[in-house]
């Protein structure tokens, strides 16, 4: 049996099908799988405590 940990939770959250099945085209960002992600820069910390 293969592991697919977290998959049911993902499906439950989305409640939609996947590509090649029921492509949801509602015009919202992130719903069509063509969203390139922008990396999120960290805040610049200048003094780091190393304890």
């Amino acid at each position: 049996m293969s592991h697919k940990i977290g998959f049911e939770g993902y499906k439950h959250e989305n409640n939609v099908g996947f590509f090649g099945k029921e492509n949801s085209k509602d015009g919202k960002d992130g719903k069509e799988g063509k969203d390139d992600i922008c990396p999120v820069a960290t805040q610049v910390h200048h003094l780091i405590e190393l304890y």
């Binding site: 697919k4 993902y10 996947f18 590509f19 949801s24 969203d35 992600i37």
Partner: peptide, 15 residues
């Protein structure tokens, strides 16, 4: 994150 459909497609492929 769950809102990311790309991950959904990848996991679907894995399944």
């Amino acid at each position: 994150q769950c809102s990311d459909q790309v991950i959904g497609a990848f996991m679907h492929h894995c399944v």
